[in-house]
Amino acid sequence: MKKHTWEPLGTLESAVMKVVWSQSPITAREVCDRMTGREERAYTTIMTTMDRLHRKGLLEREKDGLAWRYTPALSQPEFEKALADALAADILQSHGETALAAFVDAAADVDESLLDRLTQLIAARRRGRR
């Protein structure tokens, strides 16, 4: 798969991907049937959303009779990592030193052990590993 710069997903796209990540391969009809409550949408809306996710490179598909059967192009953790990488790179490129200080402050505010993990990740990166 070609390298993408991923964008955050919209509410409906996130709901669809959550279903696909949990139960694939899957058709648009099956996704529609599994979405309830506030997530519930018309079949054509789900079908259009899944086609858009396919064009964005997040879903792969194969013809199954008259329908498409979709699978995720990335696992949920892979997508979250790629999205976080792209967002972090954008923030660091735009805000440099200020962004670094904000990451450190945020890590300390969330959980002090994240600072230790940040130190380990920096050391590993300097050694050429991730």
Rank of each mutant, 00 (worst) to 15 (best):
M1F: 10
K2S: 12
K3I: 05
H4R: 14
E7T: 06
E7M: 05
L9A: 04
G10C: 05
G10N: 06
L12K: 13
L12D: 08
E13Q: 15
S14H: 10
V16Q: 05
V16N: 05
K18C: 01
V19Y: 00
Q23W: 12
S24I: 09
I26F: 02
A28P: 04
A28C: 01
R29I: 06
R29C: 01
E30L: 11
E30I: 03
V31C: 04
V31I: 01
C32G: 04
D33N: 15
R34G: 01
R34K: 12
R34F: 01
M35P: 02
T36Q: 09
G37Q: 15
R38D: 02
R38S: 08
R38K: 08
E39C: 11
E39S: 01
E39V: 07
E40F: 11
E40W: 08
R41C: 02
R41W: 02
A42W: 10
Y43S: 14
Y43D: 13
T44F: 14
T45A: 00
I46W: 09
I46T: 12
D51H: 15
L53S: 03
H54M: 11
R55A: 12
R55S: 11
G57M: 04
L59C: 04
E62T: 14
E62G: 09
E62H: 08
K63E: 12
K63L: 05
K63A: 11
D64P: 03
G65H: 04
L66R: 11
A67E: 15
A67G: 09
W68T: 11
W68Y: 13
R69D: 07
Y70L: 13
Y70F: 13
Y70E: 13
T71L: 07
T71E: 10
T71D: 15
P72S: 14
L74H: 10
L74F: 12
S75D: 12
S75G: 15
Q76G: 01
Q76P: 00
Q76K: 09
P77S: 08
F79I: 00
E80T: 10
A82P: 02
L83R: 01
A84E: 07
D85Y: 11
A86S: 05
A88M: 15
A88N: 13
A89Y: 13
D90E: 13
D90W: 09
I91R: 03
L92T: 09
L92E: 10
Q93D: 15
S94G: 11
H95L: 05
H95V: 02
G96M: 09
E97D: 00
E97C: 00
T98H: 01
A99Q: 03
L100I: 06
L100A: 05
A102I: 15
F103P: 01
V104D: 04
D105M: 07
D105A: 07
D105R: 02
D105E: 06
A106Y: 11
A107F: 00
A107M: 10
A108N: 14
D109F: 05
D109H: 09
V110A: 09
E112G: 03
S113P: 02
D116C: 00
R117H: 00
L118I: 10
T119S: 08
T119E: 10
Q120V: 07
A123C: 11
A124K: 02
R125Y: 02
R129E: 14
R130Y: 03
